[in-house]
């Protein structure tokens, strides 16, 4: 799946093709959608009928059983996946071909899309469900039909993909191995910290907040950690900056070989030399900020 194909492509003069396999990505998205909808259907079936009283035997059978299964399975799957990614790491990451590296950037992007998808189900769909569940019961124990899905199923699922994306990048993409992407770390660690923040939440509810006000400062820990989603912008910038360097290498046959691809600007740009290029490479921010570039290069 690497850049082995590069030499064979050398004589091609038409638009270059470049294999990116989307099968696993599509499968994951479909599987996750089915998983989330199934979880929601389970809530629909057994939320009211079995889940109103955490002290009842039926709660133990229908909800605590799920709780006991999902925790080891989901975290176990995560650990397995991260270990697999690490064990199958690229052991000579610096000699990776541009084509393979570019492909891996695309796969990293797909990891992040799946991660984002999971954040949607957690932060919006099931969190909203938690909001409505609180209207049907008194403050029960920390384990409710809503919390058992929201906190103990959907959070490990997004951790699977968040941490997975981080391990993938570090073990396969040179820039993400040479340096630690600050924003990638924030985007993964922030939502991860929502899990330990549950301790604060339940502590507050156990001791002094018996009524459910959603906007209560007790909940703001989740909010601040949710802000870390913004940090994916930094990862995006890291990806596009590297794309700028990789794409001309990967698609150079395209540029050289296609007579129809007249591009006077590019020709002029390439001819003008570094000094003139630097002059045109000017600050672009409305706030006067210079364009940001990777500092580890």
């Amino acid at each position: 799946m690497s850049g082995d194909a590069l030499p064979r492509m050398a004589n091609v003069t038409v638009i270059k093709t470049f294999d990116i396999h989307c099968g696993l990505f599509a499968f994951t998205m479909v599987a996750l959608t089915i998983l989330y909808i199934s979880a929601r259907l389970y809530q629909q079936a057994f939320g009211f009928s079995m889940g109103l009283d955490a002290n009842s035997p039926e709660f133990d059978r229908y909800w605590m059983t799920l709780f006991r299964i999902e925790l080891p399975v989901l975290y176990g799957a995560g650990v397995l996946c991260w270990s697999y990614l690490f064990l199958t790491r690229d052991r000579s990451i610096e000699t990776v071909t541009p084509e393979t590296e570019l492909r891996r950037y695309f796969y990293l992007t797909m990891w992040l899309v799946v991660y984002s998808f999971c954040i949607f189900w957690t932060g919006s769909f099931f969190a909203d469900g938690d909001g409505v569940w609180h209207q049907t019961t008194l403050r029960d124990t920390p384990l409710t039909p809503s919390h058992i899905i929201l906190f103990y199923a959907t959070i490990p699922i997004y951790l699977f993909f968040g941490v997975g994306s981080f391990v993938y990048a570090m073990t396969r993409i040179p820039a993400f191995c040479r340096g630690v992407s600050l924003m990638h770390a924030i985007a993964v660690v922030g939502p991860f910290l929502i899990l330990p923040n549950l301790g604060f939440n339940e502590w507050g509810h156990a001791y002094w907040l018996t009524e459910e006000i959603f906007s209560h400062p007790l909940h703001w820990g989740f909010v601040v950690l949710g802000w870390c989603a913004l940090a994916l912008a930094g990862v995006l910038m890291q990806i596009v900056e590297r794309f700028r360097e990789l794409i001309p290498l990967v698609f150079k046959q395209d540029a050289a070989g296609s007579p129809t691809d007249a591009n006077p600007f590019r020709d002029a740009w390439e001819k003008c030399g570094p000094e003139a290029q630097r002059q045109r490479y000017k600050p672009t921010s409305v706030s006067g900020r210079r364009p940001i570039s990777g500092k580890s290069k």
Partner: peptide
């Protein structure tokens, strides 16, 4: 703006 920094820390 802060979030879109492409900063790498030393690994």
């Amino acid at each position: 703006l802060f979030a879109s920094q492409a900063t790498f820390l030393k690994n």
